[in-house]
């Protein structure tokens, strides 16, 4: 039996999808504040977009206003995450997805480099160990 035989047409999004709520424009001002703080004190900050009453149209509007920058980072860590720089350097649009591709959380991050992109010193140390091990291994082979 095909699915369309079942007479169900579920409206997940109610008809007349909510448009702009007017909550997005004030966020731009907050981003301006955060960028200013980043320049002055180097302190990074973030806005949790899933914690705010924003409609899908609001998010589209924001994303369109901020535009796309030169760097787009994709992170594969139990689902895909994208950390994309916007047209305003230092402002990043961060989206975390789960394995099924559904958005888990969404942030606007204001930082020179998002925290998640940086490698942690402990992990770097582990990498160094691996490298040294590799060299030792090669030398062992050469001898």
């Amino acid at each position: 039996m095909k699915l369309d035989v079942i007479p169900i047409h579920v409206a997940n999004q109610p008809p007349g999808e909510p448009g702009l709520s007017g909550n997005a424009p004030p966020l731009l001002r907050e981003v301006v504040e955060q960028v200013r703080r980043l320049i002055e004190s180097g302190e990074p900050s973030a806005i949790d977009l899933s914690a705010l009453p924003l409609t899908p149209a609001d998010l589209d509007w924001l994303q369109e206003k901020l535009g796309a920058g030169e760097i787009a980072v994709t992170l594969q860590a139990s689902g895909e995450s994208t950390l994309n720089e916007t047209a305003c350097p230092g402002v990043w649009w961060v989206t975390h997805r789960n394995e099924q591709g559904a958005v888990n959380s969404q942030f606007i991050e204001v930082a020179f480099v998002p925290e998640l992109v940086k490698a942690h010193p402990q992990d770097v140390a582990l990498g160094l160990e691996t490298l040294e091990f590799m060299i030792a291994d090669r030398q062992g082979d050469a001898d």
């Binding site: 973030a46 806005i47 914690a51």
Partner: peptide, 25 residues
Amino acid sequence: VSRRTFLKYCATLASMMALPPAAGL
């Protein structure tokens, strides 16, 4: 489970708990 996976999870957890984004870190 990599450190970044864990960081990502904590960011989402903090968001779900209505904590400020810095709390995730």
